[in-house]
Design a protein around this nucleic acid. Sequence first.
DNA 1: GTGGTCTAGACCACC
DNA 2: GTGGTCTAGACCACA
Lengths: 125, 125, 125, 125
Amino acid sequence: MEFNKHQSIYLQIADFICENVMTEKWPSDEKISSVRELAANMEVNPNTVMRAYSQLQDEGIIYNKRGIGYFVSEGASKKIKDMEKEDFINNELPKIFKKMKMLNIKFSELEELYNKTSNGKTNIS
Amino acid sequence: MEFNKHQSIYLQIADFICENVMTEKWPSDEKISSVRELAANMEVNPNTVMRAYSQLQDEGIIYNKRGIGYFVSEGASKKIKDMEKEDFINNELPKIFKKMKMLNIKFSELEELYNKTSNGKTNIS
Amino acid sequence: MEFNKHQSIYLQIADFICENVMTEKWPSDEKISSVRELAANMEVNPNTVMRAYSQLQDEGIIYNKRGIGYFVSEGASKKIKDMEKEDFINNELPKIFKKMKMLNIKFSELEELYNKTSNGKTNIS
Amino acid sequence: MEFNKHQSIYLQIADFICENVMTEKWPSDEKISSVRELAANMEVNPNTVMRAYSQLQDEGIIYNKRGIGYFVSEGASKKIKDMEKEDFINNELPKIFKKMKMLNIKFSELEELYNKTSNGKTNIS
DNA sequence: GTGGTCTAGACCACC
DNA sequence: GTGGTCTAGACCACA
């Protein structure tokens, strides 16, 4: 895994896990990789993975069975989706729209770009 | 000036300058505040301002006349706009669209939100 | 390490590193001294070393693994050589030749001097 | 006049004057531009020109007649030539040769480059 | 342990 | 007056 240098690694790992949970690639009550295993895969210090897991546990996304490992919480997928959606609409979108105005990007251009990126992936729908 | 604690001060100063240059509030060849002066205004250490100035000089946004001060470069406004636009389209938008898909937000919803935020500013005036 | 007073210390440190990289005394992906360690060795403030490292990182000569340290970039040796060679041929040589003309030094004299300095090192060994 | 940003302006002005003296474009006992005049031409602070003149006066390259102006000293041309030649041979050349070795530039390449730059300018001689 | 940022204060060369 | 560099020492986030 490659890391963006402008964000801490543990947050990027947490995001990576969230994505897998949200898309239900890792469904509820599934055991996720052990700290050491994931650390080895990602070529990262186990402490760093641990920190990501702790944070997700605090947020209720995953839970821990002592001596066994970490598991995806019931309803975690929906929970993440709701949180992210709220953040997206209330915090991110306003910034995006503001930036578009500053850069003189019209909404119609956005539509064009959206259609371009969608093509080839979402045929027929 | 108030600073966001999640980004370094010198970068926020650089952004602040970029905004003034981009909007041409500070036109080409205009002298900008001296290091010490800006530092005093912002209640910040001169070294911190210096760091912002140095970076902007490296990027060609401002230039220095020795013993006199820093000045806005020719064409800096356009340069910043181009850089930001490129970054927006190539880096930010793909992330946004990806997120929208994950969150099942349709483009039509985006349009709605856009129109909402635009109202009150662009109507009748 | 002793520093020349006509050039800033951080630049001399950067040059020192470049030399070690160029001659491949420090090969690719080798970890270089930590900021504090080098600062202690050179009896210099860590900030000063940091500044040298930052600049070299901007130039792509070294890279950073967070929390671990700085490493020599892939191909840095060749990169430095190319940069220096280009500078030598395009910027330094023209000045040298111009000076020679002004001082009425013929190319044959240069050759003589070159052979003199080479002697003692390349003869018989 | 355009100034190199890596050397102080007053030194570049001094060099400029030396060149004119050395090539005898400005012969002995010729009056040179007044401080103000040169400063205006070069778009530079008069203090900066003054500093260059002072240094050249200290070195005996020019002399001052109070109330009248600065003049080129007797034998200044030869004097400069001798100083520069000595410096060139004893200080600059060794550095140049050292650099050539580091960059694997052979003397024959130097010869080639020399012949290239000389052509077109020194025809027939 | 690592780097990264910031402060306070100093000194210098230069304009 | 301007910028540029350096020091000493602090604090923080991160691995």
